[in-house]
Amino acid sequence: MITCVVHYVIDPAKIGDFERFAAAWMDLVQRHGGVHHGYFLPAEGASDAAMALFSFPGLAEYEVYRSRFGSDPEFVEADRIRDESGCVLRYDRTFMRPLLPPGGSGR
């Protein structure tokens, strides 16, 4: 399994737009072979940090999903929310693998 961790710098004044963007991507990941672990948004105080985590069985499966960027109309539409609203100021992506406790799911 490979997990993509995306760190965002968002415009706090556009959190509603970011939530629409996030909902669209959660749906796309789920429908295209991944497991979305959610978006994590600022909860208290002024913050411009947000994060998303989603997993695919492996890098090959992630690459199939990624191949749809820029061509699949649903993927283009999801990115349009971000681009037209300006809710995301910057983001970076890191790939990680989980190390879980023996016999458990990390809970």
Rank of each mutant, 00 (worst) to 15 (best):
R20W: 06
D27W: 11
G16H: 12
M1Q: 10
R20S: 14
C87T: 01
D92S: 11
E84P: 00
G58A: 05
D92V: 08
L99I: 11
P98E: 15
Y62R: 07
A24W: 11
H7D: 15
Q30Y: 13
G103K: 04
R66Q: 07
E19K: 15
R90E: 13
E61Q: 04
M51W: 09
L100H: 06
E19Q: 15
G70I: 05
R66W: 03
P57S: 05
Y39A: 10
A60M: 01
R20Q: 14
V64R: 06
G16N: 15
A60Y: 01
I2G: 06
L28D: 11
E19H: 09
G104M: 09
P98H: 12
R82P: 00
P73M: 02
G103C: 06
P102R: 08
L100F: 06
A22Q: 11
E74W: 01
E84S: 05
E63S: 04
G33F: 09
F21K: 09
F40Q: 08
E19V: 15
S85C: 03
G70Y: 04
D83P: 00
C4K: 14
L28S: 10
A46R: 12
Y91V: 02
V64H: 03
K14S: 07
C4E: 15
G58W: 03
F95N: 01
G103Q: 05
G38M: 09
A78P: 04
L53N: 04
P12N: 11
D79M: 07
P12L: 12
M26Y: 06
L99G: 06
E63T: 09
D11S: 13
D79Y: 03
F21Y: 15
A24S: 13
G45T: 05
E84Q: 06
L59I: 11
F69P: 00
R80K: 05
W25L: 08
R97E: 12
E74D: 09
V29M: 08
L89C: 05
Y8T: 10
L53S: 06
P42F: 05
H32Y: 10
L59G: 04
T3H: 12
G34N: 06
D48L: 07
G103L: 07
A22Y: 10
V6C: 13
F18Q: 12
R97N: 07
V64G: 00
P12D: 08
V76A: 02
V29Q: 07
E84D: 07
M96D: 03
S47M: 04
G38R: 07
Y65I: 00
G104K: 09
L28C: 10
E63M: 08
G106K: 08
G58R: 03
S67Q: 02
C4Y: 11
A22C: 12
D72K: 01
R107K: 12
L99S: 10
W25S: 11
A13E: 15
V35R: 14
Q30A: 15
A50C: 03
D17Q: 14
G86V: 03
I15H: 09
A50I: 06
A23D: 13
V64F: 02
R80D: 03
H32G: 05
I10Q: 07
V29G: 08
M1L: 13
A23R: 14
I15D: 08
R107P: 11
Y39Q: 04
T3I: 13
S71P: 01
